[in-house]
Design a protein around this nucleic acid. Sequence first.
DNA 1: TGTCGGCGTCAAGGACCCGTCAAGATCCCG
DNA 2: CGGGATCTTGACGGGTCCTTGACGCCGACA
Lengths: 234, 234
Amino acid sequence: MTRVLVVDDDTALLRALAINLRARHFDVETAGDGATALRKAASTGPDLVVLDLGLPDMDGVEVVAGLRGWTSVPIIVLSARDTQSAKVDALDAGADDYMTKPFGMDELIARIRAALRRAAPEPTSPVLVTPDFTVDLSAKRVTRDGAPVRLTPTEWHVLEVLVRNLGKLVTQQQLLREVWGPSYVEETHYLRVYLAQLRRKLEPEPSRPRHLITEPGIGYRFEVERQGSGRTGA
Amino acid sequence: MTRVLVVDDDTALLRALAINLRARHFDVETAGDGATALRKAASTGPDLVVLDLGLPDMDGVEVVAGLRGWTSVPIIVLSARDTQSAKVDALDAGADDYMTKPFGMDELIARIRAALRRAAPEPTSPVLVTPDFTVDLSAKRVTRDGAPVRLTPTEWHVLEVLVRNLGKLVTQQQLLREVWGPSYVEETHYLRVYLAQLRRKLEPEPSRPRHLITEPGIGYRFEVERQGSGRTGA
DNA sequence: TGTCGGCGTCAAGGACCCGTCAAGATCCCG
DNA sequence: CGGGATCTTGACGGGTCCTTGACGCCGACA
């Protein structure tokens, strides 16, 4: 489910936005000030941010800059200010869109759809190949030594999330929320069980995993062989 | 040079747009109707399209659909119509942005910049590079000499806060509140321990740190060398 | 020059987390 | 209604990480 972080100090508007977005089947997180917004964005990794510029603790443009320092998540800015310079500042800081309050809900939803559509194109090929096994995301198939590997639905779901975030660390909360739902973010035991099962089915040495890597206390990471120069080219 | 195709049946506005865009060093093509727009888009392959919806020969939304049939070039729509449904229709047809006439030239330019920025292929995540190690905030990964560095959750959190405030002084209270919570702002000893651990893992000479700098009595600062290093932002 | 506070370093204990196995509980399909 | 696969839950050993204390160094200051 698409995760949207909504940032606004107006609790009434915040609630209205959350209700409308949830009715459209978005997974909504909220924040009432800039510091909370930056913290929640870092911890939950949303797919899109709706950001009101008028925050109590810091300038909205600073929040945009703070996000842009580490993520390219789409940002749609809301503001009561209708001047050109305000819009130019926000957009040049890294915002993707700027809407002036009051705004129409349908238009906001449409702009959210447009922003997500732009961000959507996954350049990664649907099939991932490692020396030990291959994962075909579109066909939902895993092959090892040419033979298909039998995965349970939950096992596949966990693997899928990790592969979609290839090389990136996925926090335990992210995984649990994505696979089991928001109310299961505490059940870290599930992860241990299922990661162990996946490793037993996929890793050549399950006790010394090469791809399904644990980052103790944080989460898991799907590691791809990075042979040759570890160039992190721009 | 960035090529922009401007489509409008109002020749005066068309000329004004062309002049302004050329002054900003864009390479401008123009079209006065939908058929010409589609033909020119196909032949010249612009990097961005500015499209007035009010065209003499066909509906602007059809032009959007016609372009989206074969290209994902960013499209910024101009229109005199200010209704929500008009905006929703255009955006859902595949437009990237919608501006209501009359509009400010500076805002249009800013939205063009934003659209081009998004379209710019930047598959790699923003990374902080120093001569000694690299920090990938998005992937939560630290690399030194090409090999990943193992950080504990707390070590990573401290480093993350410092890197997010690149070059800026972070007070001890800020760090403690962010990483350990508001009730730990007195525990400055934690900082000494963890900064030492980070230096041991990251600095070439832990006793003479080049990046994790102490500001005695105040806090800490992440320092980057000016020469040859820097952020490759989004 | 002596004192004091802040900083860096090291080490140890205990809490916490991870991997593993296995036994119910539940779901799904025949 | 029955059986198998799958999911949940519990227990436990081993390892990691956080916390805490002790100590030396250095600069500020009297």
